[in-house]
């Protein structure tokens, strides 16, 4: 049993989107679909020439936040959305009735409808691919050339992610909603 989370040193992101490609390849995600499972948000430079704020430009990799208190799980009428033994928020397509309540309820816009199964899908930290094969990294983490992502067990004090989170400041997205997201953006 673990409690998986991910720390993102997002200021190192160069927007190469290799993570998106790796995710699509590893998890058989539909091609030509943006924001499916993971994506990179782009905040362009603010200001007008010549007063441009170069510091304002940032790339922001994002995905399901795997909340400890996930609104999508709370609202699911058939428990198709559930926490697995590693605290990963997952969807059982056999139980999903496509009411899309979870899409409405997710504050992070992390869910979408997979046209092949006509059920709702989202990032599952490669739970049924790499993690199921016994690997300890996600596809997006393994492929990242600038080592933005650190994936691991938050309950293990010796894991890399626990070490990093104990030493560096971080922020979480919309934590004021009480969702307890397990994605940590390193400052």
């Amino acid at each position: 049993m673990a409690r998986y989370g991910m720390a993102l040193d997002y200021k190192n992101c160069i927007n190469c989107r290799a993570c998106e490609s790796a995710c699509k390849q590893e998890n058989s995600i539909l091609l030509n679909k943006d924001h499916y499972r993971i994506w990179v948000g782009v905040k362009e430079i603010e200001g007008e020439w010549p007063n441009l704020s170069i510091a304002s430009s940032v790339f922001h990799p994002s995905q399901c936040q795997h909340c400890d208190n996930a609104p999508c799980q709370l609202v699911c009428p058939t428990n198709a959305t559930y926490y697995d033994q590693n605290g990963v928020v997952r969807v059982n397509p056999e139980q999903c009735i496509l009411c899309t309540y979870c899409i409405n309820a997710c504050p992070y816009d992390a869910r979408y409808v997979d046209d092949r199964t006509t059920t709702v899908d989202k990032c599952n930290f490669c739970a049924d691919t790499r993690i199921a094969r016994g690997e300890s990294t996600t596809a997006c983490q393994a492929t990242c050339p600038t080592k933005v992502r650190i994936f691991g067990d938050l309950d293990d004090p010796n894991s890399e992610i626990s070490q990093v989170l104990s030493k560096r400041e971080y922020k979480q997205v919309k934590e004021s909603l009480g969702t307890k997201p397990k994605l940590f953006y390193l400052i």
Binding site: L74, V75, P77, T78, C99
Partner: peptide, 12 residues
């Protein structure tokens, strides 16, 4: 699945 696996925290 409303019967087999009811989501008791779901308003729906």
């Amino acid at each position: 699945y409303n019967v087999l696996t009811p989501g008791l925290t779901s308003a729906i």
